[in-house]
């Protein structure tokens, strides 16, 4: 029985790069909002997130022109995130409620729904404009 088999591995670890991706910056900025503002002004650079895998299911996109208001998407949505707007042949998607299963995009007969690669959707208000697709 060896005494400490992990010890050589730990020593090797000191010289290695960290396994994690340092998103959004190498070191934690003093304020994240201040850092993002600086990125917007071009004063700082952002460490990009890990690229998304193929067929990633991100924020939903909705082509309003081809929607016929059949309501099939609302019928298969497990989270009840899709609402038929009364009086119109259109839908409203509450992204805050969406569980990104992509079931509605498969059932849509007109191909009007698809999933984008966008995934940075954190918001303090679940009714913000960014989280409602219509």
């Amino acid at each position: 029985m060896k005494f400490l088999p992990l010890f050589p591995e730990l020593l090797r670890q000191i010289l290695r790069e960290p396994a994690t991706n340092r998103f959004p910056a190498k070191y934690l900025p003093r304020t994240v909002t201040g850092f993002l503002k600086a990125v917007g002004e071009g004063k700082a650079t952002i460490v990009p997130p890990v690229p998304t895998p193929p067929n990633f299911r991100g924020k939903i996109t909705y082509k309003i022109d081809c929607c016929i208001g059949c309501g099939l998407c609302a019928k298969v949505c497990p989270a009840h995130a899709i609402e038929l707007i009364p009086g119109t042949k259109q839908i409203r998607i509450w992204v805050g409620q969406c569980i990104f299963c992509s079931q509605c995009t498969g059932i849509c007969p007109k191909g009007g729904l698809s999933m984008s690669d966008e995934f940075l959707l954190a918001d303090e208000n679940r009714y913000s404009e960014n989280l409602i697709v219509e």
Partner: peptide, 9 residues
């Protein structure tokens, strides 16, 4: 819910 929805639940 219907079975198609439940699989995600």
């Amino acid at each position: 819910r219907n079975p198609v929805q439940i699989v995600h639940l």
